[in-house]
């Protein structure tokens, strides 16, 4: 940050506006979390009321009797797999595009950036058919591989300028010491570009954690379901159990909220990088 003046107390108008905006943003979220502490009859009788008394039963029920933990595990495996693969493949390709000089380099870059124009949603039906013919449906790969493929263009667009900016002198010095380009990638580039790698990793992780359409089509086996599928199924299966749905929904969004609180800088930084191009 380039702040030179200390923060001061803003005007009352600034604060009231800021409070109003914040309230609109989180009121529904708070409502869902608090609603999970009520019983369904309480909610029906007074939809906008507070818990009276507070009940823990809904949360306890979801944590002990539903498939919550299995689904959280599936979500975690798929999100981690996607993140690791996106970062590994993305940094390799971006490194070549940033630090090798060869015929067709810009053509290759354009080829990848074209992927930004391919909406993942439009490819979903043929993607499903292809995975079905490859016997990959109902496996973690069925979600991971397409997610990696569709995240690569943005990853490369964010990483390439970052890797290009590493001074050439460093590379020459490494070469004099007998380190080739691969050694330079492994020993110097990767440690130096950690912030950018974290950024693309966080973006890939959040996108995967929240993904719905792809898992919906390719994971029909309930034991492989991820949290978004679990929330949706729970809410359509137990329609009358409003309190249970609220509790399940709160628990499902908790990891994303915690994760976001810690990774907010990286997410914002990543989008900032994307804006600068």
């Amino acid at each position: 940050m380039t702040e030179r003046r200390p923060f001061s107390w803003g005007s009352p108008l600034t604060y009231s506006l800021a409070f109003a905006v914040a309230a609109i943003s989180i009121a529904p979220v708070v409502y869902v979390i608090v609603g999970g502490f009520r019983t369904t009859p309480q909610i029906v009788a007074d939809p906008a009321g507070l818990p009276d008394p507070w009940v823990w039963d809904n949360y306890a029920r979801v944590l002990t009797q539903s498939d919550f933990w299995g689904q959280a595990f599936n979500s975690a495996v798929i999100a981690l797999g996607t993140t690791i693969a996106v970062v590994a493949l993305g940094v390799s390709a971006a490194y070549v595009l940033a630090r090798y000089t060869f015929r067709g380099r810009e053509a290759l870059y354009t080829f990848f950036t074209l992927g930004l124009l391919f909406p993942a949603g439009a490819a979903i039906l043929p993607l499903y058919l292809m995975l079905r013919d490859l016997n990959l449906t109902n496996s973690y790969y069925a979600v991971i591989l397409p997610q990696v493929a569709f995240s690569l263009p943005l990853t490369i667009v964010i990483l390439r300028p970052f890797l290009s900016a590493i001074p050439r002198e460093l590379e020459d010095a490494a070469a004099i010491d007998g380190t080739g380009k691969l050694g330079f990638l492994w020993r110097i580039t990767l440690p130096l570009s950690k912030p950018a790698l974290v950024t693309v990793g966080v973006l890939a992780f959040v996108a995967s954690w929240n993904a719905f359409l792809l898992p919906l089509l390719v994971l029909s086996d309930a034991s492989l379901h991820t949290l978004p599928l679990g929330v949706q199924n729970f809410s359509s299966q137990y329609t009358s159990d409003t309190a249970g749905i609220l509790a399940f929904t709160s628990l499902a969004m908790l990891p994303a909220l915690v994760f976001f609180t810690f990774a907010e800088k990286q997410i914002v930084g990543g989008l900032q990088g994307a804006v600068k191009g």
Binding site: I26, V206, W209, L227, L257, F259
Partner: peptide
């Protein structure tokens, strides 16, 4: 706080 809705899953 303003960014919270953006990180929540669409399904949620």
């Amino acid at each position: 706080l303003v960014f919270v809705p953006y990180v929540l899953a669409e399904v949620t």
